[in-house]
Computed example of a mutant assay.
Amino acid sequence: MSAQANPDSKYEILAQTPEQRHKYLLTRLQETQEIWTLVDNDGAMILTTDEEDCIPIWPDADFAKDWINGDWSHCQPHKITLSDWQHKWLPGLEEDEIQIVSFPVPGEDGLVSAPWEMAEELA
């Protein structure tokens, strides 16, 4: 989905279940060879859910920008290539015991998975 995409499409995607959004994210990751997270001067932003630290990821910058407010108003979208995600980020997240929350939307949960689970899905 690009910045020129139909706004109705964005809302339809946001209305999907966490599992559907996760599948959409994986499909877009394969198509565009990139995903997005939010960063500030200290690095990637981390969400804490149910005692777990999670890095949120989105299929494009537009969806990530929806989170730039409140405590995260100082953040900016950060593009990660598929290669970097697979070879650098996933092993690092696994080592640091940080989970992944796929395509969260404000006010609703995203699908939480372990880095090794996403690595298997991308293999």
Rank of each mutant, 00 (worst) to 15 (best):
T37V: 09
Q33V: 07
I13G: 06
E19W: 13
K88Q: 15
T37H: 02
V101G: 12
S113R: 00
Q33C: 04
T32N: 05
E51K: 00
P59Q: 08
C54A: 15
Q33I: 07
R28C: 14
K79Y: 06
V105M: 00
D42V: 06
K88F: 11
W72V: 00
F63K: 00
T81V: 02
E52Y: 12
E52H: 11
I100V: 12
A44P: 08
E94A: 09
A119L: 08
Q20C: 08
S73I: 09
Q30P: 00
W67F: 12
S2E: 15
K10G: 07
A123Y: 12
V105H: 04
D8S: 14
G92L: 00
A15Y: 10
G107D: 04
Q99S: 15
K10I: 14
H22V: 05
E108V: 01
K23W: 11
R28D: 09
W116S: 14
F63R: 02
K79E: 08
W116R: 15
T48F: 13
G43R: 00
P59C: 09
Q4D: 15
D50W: 10
V112I: 12
P106M: 01
P104G: 07
D71F: 08
P115M: 02
A15G: 04
I100F: 03
E108N: 12
E121D: 10
T81K: 03
D42E: 06
Y11G: 09
K23P: 00
R28N: 12
L111N: 11
I80R: 04
E31L: 11
E121Y: 04
I57H: 08
Q4C: 15
